[in-house]
Simulated scan of single mutants.
Amino acid sequence: MNDKQLAARQAASLVEDDMLVGLGTGSTANCFIEELARRSSEEGLRVAVVASSMVSAIKAQQLGLPLQAIEHVQHLDLYVDGADEVTPDLTLLKGRGYDLVREKLLARGCDRFLVLLDRSKLVERIGERYPIPVEVPPFAWPLVKKSLEAVDGHGALRQTANKDGLVVTSHGSLVLNMVFPPALDSNTLDGLLNAKRVATS
């Protein structure tokens, strides 16, 4: 097993019968979904799941996990997801996927949030390897971009992999990939983003 699979197995071992479990999105979350489905099939684990994205929903359905719609959920027992970067003080960057709002809602609506990491995600500062994603309504992206440029951010709308269109989230939003000065510490940056009332992950 690789590090992602080991972390996923450990997280899945904490799931108990009759839990409602939130599923993150990405390669690490996929390992957890697979392990949860294995436990359900081989051990008879009774569990229901809520997905943070269409991709995770499809994977859960394909593996036979009972899926609940997010609009029918008031709280979760557990939410499990990966992260793109993590600093020594455990500040996390997420959002290289497309579903920042749904991921944040599930993370805030759970009794327990587990983040699965491997050594490749360790950084000294947030934004060291990847731009910081900001989810915005399609009608508001120029205003939000201008607002973020006022605090020394720069960036552009995220394009699809083959550069022939823009990324659209399950929520119907666009994603700004923003870069901020390295001297801007995580707490200050978080405060600035929250003050701008934008959705980040």
Rank of each mutant, 00 (worst) to 15 (best):
1 M>Y: 10
2 N>L: 06
3 D>Y: 08
5 Q>A: 12
5 Q>V: 14
5 Q>M: 11
6 L>G: 12
10 Q>T: 07
10 Q>K: 13
13 S>G: 12
15 V>S: 05
19 M>P: 09
20 L>R: 00
20 L>P: 01
22 G>T: 00
22 G>A: 07
22 G>I: 03
23 L>W: 00
23 L>G: 06
24 G>W: 00
24 G>Q: 02
26 G>F: 00
26 G>S: 02
30 N>E: 07
32 F>G: 00
33 I>A: 06
34 E>P: 14
34 E>H: 15
35 E>G: 05
36 L>M: 06
37 A>T: 10
45 L>N: 10
46 R>N: 09
47 V>L: 08
47 V>T: 11
49 V>H: 06
49 V>G: 01
50 V>G: 01
50 V>Y: 09
54 M>G: 15
56 S>H: 02
56 S>F: 02
56 S>L: 05
59 K>S: 14
60 A>Q: 05
61 Q>H: 13
62 Q>N: 10
63 L>Y: 03
68 Q>A: 13
70 I>S: 10
71 E>H: 12
75 H>P: 13
80 V>A: 10
81 D>R: 00
84 D>K: 00
85 E>N: 11
85 E>R: 02
87 T>I: 00
89 D>G: 01
90 L>T: 01
90 L>A: 07
92 L>A: 08
92 L>T: 08
93 L>R: 00
94 K>H: 07
97 G>T: 09
97 G>N: 03
97 G>C: 07
98 Y>N: 12
100 L>D: 01
101 V>W: 03
102 R>Y: 08
105 L>K: 01
107 A>D: 07
107 A>Y: 05
108 R>Q: 09
109 G>S: 11
111 D>F: 15
112 R>Y: 10
112 R>M: 11
112 R>H: 09
112 R>A: 09
115 V>P: 01
117 L>C: 09
119 R>P: 10
120 S>I: 01
122 L>F: 06
123 V>P: 05
123 V>F: 00
128 E>G: 11
133 P>D: 04
133 P>R: 06
134 V>L: 11
135 E>L: 03
135 E>P: 03
138 P>C: 07
139 F>A: 10
139 F>C: 14
139 F>H: 13
141 W>R: 04
142 P>F: 10
142 P>N: 10
144 V>F: 04
145 K>L: 13
149 E>M: 04
150 A>I: 14
154 H>P: 08
156 A>W: 02
158 R>E: 12
158 R>H: 04
159 Q>L: 11
160 T>E: 05
161 A>T: 11
162 N>G: 10
164 D>F: 14
165 G>M: 15
165 G>K: 11
167 V>G: 06
167 V>Q: 06
169 T>Y: 15
169 T>Q: 14
170 S>T: 12
175 V>P: 05
176 L>V: 12
177 N>Q: 15
179 V>M: 13
180 F>H: 03
183 A>T: 04
183 A>V: 10
184 L>W: 08
186 S>P: 07
187 N>V: 13
188 T>Q: 15
189 L>A: 08
190 D>W: 10
191 G>T: 03
192 L>E: 02
192 L>G: 12
193 L>F: 02
194 N>H: 14
195 A>D: 15
196 K>Y: 05
197 R>H: 07
197 R>P: 04
198 V>A: 02
200 T>M: 01
201 S>K: 02
